[in-house]
Design a protein around this nucleic acid. Structure first.
Ligand code: ATP
Length: 663
DNA sequence: GTCCCCAAGCCTCGC
DNA sequence: GCTTGGGGAC
């Protein structure tokens, strides 16, 4: 076992302790992910455990892909190995087991935008005021209930109206044969809890289970893991409570702090701490720990640094965001020329997506190659959503929401009144919308004219034709054919007029995405088909990075949330202002909100290996209006001697500046 | 049935 | 500031 020599004794112990519950609780950069990866290899290569007996859960799809690649490189084979996010695992599980709940295996996954639409229609059905029961709030409450594994009856104890909304929402989803994101965890748990034979099957299957970033799991995810590990009880989780930054999604770092209590059964729980940080310079680390030690609710850790020396943290302020981005662009340029640090070993970590746009513009102008990670989803664009609705309906004919989106796109002369009559007809006969089309001709109670009925029939034929085509040929090829058939470009020209060329380009991007998906599937020994494509889009699990080397030499621009688990030679954290980090919305939430923001800052800082730049602006545009900004209070929590403030000026210089300003 | 205009809210973070 | 979609005009 040559490869074990890459590990320190504590890491080695974590890797070779395979039986019983194991918790690795350790700070940033201490090699937790490395432990998980090596542990997988150890199980496969040394103990010869069949791949299908192991489940590894990562936080993001990117992390899953990276781990898969490393395992593939080291063992040559990744077939049958389950490395996925909780949600991707949920999809996998439900494909096999969702029948017991009365759903079909070909279910749709609704994004939160879709669920808002659904909630909107439910409020209308229940004749409720959307002002009094805002769909956003309802969606949030339903999500919270599902995280806590509560059904409508249990969640709506105080508020019967909410109970009814939640109940109807869940019923509608089932009729549409669709699930929301929370269902991907909630439903598997409910199935495992109520069907002991299924629970036995799955918990016997997974002899070893590992979870990375355990501090960001929520209650339902913890229960899911407990149910799956019940039989063998070989469960290993790693994490760092200081890096819990997904509370808004229900994550609760008490899961990791209570791991021992949760999992001790006959076997004792082993806890291993890793103290050595291999990533960052002592200066960066001292600053990050000084900051995080201001949090009251945390498990204190001691750290030692492996690296020596290093330069101070660079701090600077600019008037506005553009200038901030320009200075960063120049630093990256210099870093590459003078420091020989390649583009992709720099990273810009933003608090919000909106910040990213400025960097995109400035980098483009200054010819700095960049790539945006995450951010505004391509799939949220209206024109793309329409295209996806077609695919969803083709895949899942029960998906009425998608049907409504596209039955008159491109315009085929089916208007609101016609549609209203059609819907009533379908409801009266208890049919799905697509299913109702066939009955129109035989039944007399639809109140629709012959030509109108024919329009519906043509639409259904189109859907059915492509259902077949997608089974026969490659997704990307069928897409091209399909877009031609519905004369999409023509429609875009009609709707978008001058903007059409730009929108038409989006069609091309969509097809490129499909091609990318196909090569991604191939790389992972997966079958590329419509089902996989839809899943891939719903879970956003494509690495935006494609294979050509070009892309690997670009500066990533992303949010701090997306940077979790990554590391870079040089890190820039722009927008270090009060109101941005900590964000206004979090400040409003009180102390817990601020502590979460402090963890965010800690995560961002600890991504840096050698150089760290922190910057803030004095004016920032918020919803179009310029507002004055002051430096983040977190800045005061970083010891001054670790920081090189470029703007540190003498009194005289300040005076001179002021004079200049008013001259 | 379709087009077009204007009020209103927006994305903090994302599987 | 900009998108979006509801509601009225054609
Ligand atoms: N024993 C070791 N010797 C040398 N380098 C190591 C060792 N262990 C880990 N590293 C390196 O330290 C870096 C951080 O490791 P890793 O990403 O696994 O840490 P982590 O604890 O998961 O970090 P984080 O919690 O911040 O995501 C990696 O570059 C890794 O290769």
């Amino acid at each position: 076992m040559q490869f074990l020599n890459d590990l320190n004794p504590y890491q080695k112990e974590a890797v070779t302790t395979t039986e019983g519950p194991l918790l690795v609780l350790a700070g940033a950069g201490s090699g937790k992910t490395k432990v998980i990866t090596y542990r997988l290899i150890y199980l496969l290569k040394k103990l010869h455990i069949p791949a299908k007996r192991i489940l590894a859960v990562t936080f993001t799809n990117k992390a899953a892909n990276e781990m898969r690649e490393r395992i593939k490189a080291l063992t040559g084979n990744i077939k049958d190995l389950s490395i996925s996010t909780f949600h991707a695992f949920g999809v996998h599980f439900l494909k096999e087991e969702i029948k017991v709940l009365g759903y079909m295996p070909k279910f749709s996954i609704y994004s939160d935008k879709d669920t808002l639409e659904l909630l909107h229609s439910i409020l209308i059905d229940l004749k409720l005021d959307a002002e009094k029961y805002p769909p956003r709030l309802m969606a949030y409450l339903i999500s919270k209930a599902k995280n806590k594994l509560l059904f409508p009856e249990q969640a709506g104890l105080e508020d019967p109206v909410f109970r009814d909304i939640y109940r109807l929402y869940q019923e509608q989803l089932r009729v549409l044969n669709a699930v929301d994101f929370d269902d991907l965890i909630f439903l598997p748990v409910k199935i495992l809890q109520s069907h002991s034979e299924i629970q036995q099957k799955w918990s016997q299957r997974f002899q070893y289970i590992m979870v990375d970033e355990y501090q960001d799991t929520n209650h339902s995810q913890y229960i899911l893991i407990r149910l799956l590990s019940q039989f063998h009880n070989n469960i290993c989780v790693v994490g760092d409570d200081d890096q819990s930054i997904y509370a808004f999604r229900g994550a609760d770092f008490h899961n990791i702090l209570s791991f021992e209590k949760h999992f001790k059964k006959d076997d004792p729980v082993k806890i291993i701490t890793l103290k050595i940080n291999y990533r960052s310079t002592p200066i960066i680390l001292e600053a990050a720990y000084a900051l995080i030690s201001h949090n009251s609710k945390r498990h204190a850790k001691s750290v030692e640094t492996f690296l020596k020396d290093g330069e101070k943290i660079n701090l600077f302020e600019t008037m506005e965001a553009r200038e901030e981005a320009e200075i960063i662009a120049d630093e990256i340029f210099n870093g590459r020329i003078e420091g020989k640090v390649p583009y992709h070993d720099h990273a810009v970590l933003c608090r919000t997506n909106t910040q990213m746009r400025t960097f995109e513009e400035v980098f483009r102008q200054k010819n700095i190659p960049y790539r945006l990670i995450g951010g505004f989803s391509f799939f949220d664009r209206k024109e793309v959503k329409d295209l996806i609705a077609y695919l969803k309906l083709i895949y899942n004919p029960l998906d009425n929401l998608s049907f409504l989106r596209i039955v008159n796109f491109p315009k085929r002369g089916i208007g609101d009144t016609t549609l209203e009559k059609f819907k009533n007809f379908a409801f009266a006969h208890d049919l799905s919308f697509l299913g109702a089309v066939d009955s129109l001709a035989h039944k007399t109670d639809s109140d629709l004219s012959k030509p109108l009925i024919h329009k519906f029939e043509l639409f259904k034929e189109l859907i059915e034709k492509y259902e077949k085509r997608f089974q026969e040929s490659k997704v990307s090829e069928v897409l091209v054919e399909f877009f031609q058939e519905i004369e999409l470009e023509k429609e875009f020209e009609r709707i978008y007029k001058d903007e059409a060329p730009f929108r038409i380009k989006v069609i091309g991007d969509f097809i490129d995405y499909a091609k990318n998906y196909e090569s991604y599937a191939k790389k992972n020994d997966e079958l590329a088909n419509l089902e996989g494509f839809l899943k891939n889009m719903s879970l956003l699990n494509q690495d935006t990075k494609d294979d050509d080397e070009e892309t690997n030499h670009k500066v990533p621009i992303m949010t701090i949330h997306a940077s979790k688990g990554l590391e870079f030679h040089t890190v820039f954290i722009p927008g270090f202002e009060e109101g941005n980090i900590p964000h206004d919305r979090s400040i409003k939430e009180g102390p817990a909100g601020i502590e979460e923001e402090r963890r965010l800052a800690y995560v961002a800082m600890t991504r840096a290996k050698k150089r760290l730049f922190i910057s803030h602006v004095s004016m920032r545009k918020i919803f179009g209006t310029e507002t004055e900004r002051i430096p983040s209070k977190f800045l005061k929590e970083i010891p001054k001697h670790l920081v090189a403030d470029r703007d540190e000026k003498t009194e005289d210089e300040h005076l001179a500046d002021l004079k200049k300003m008013f001259a």
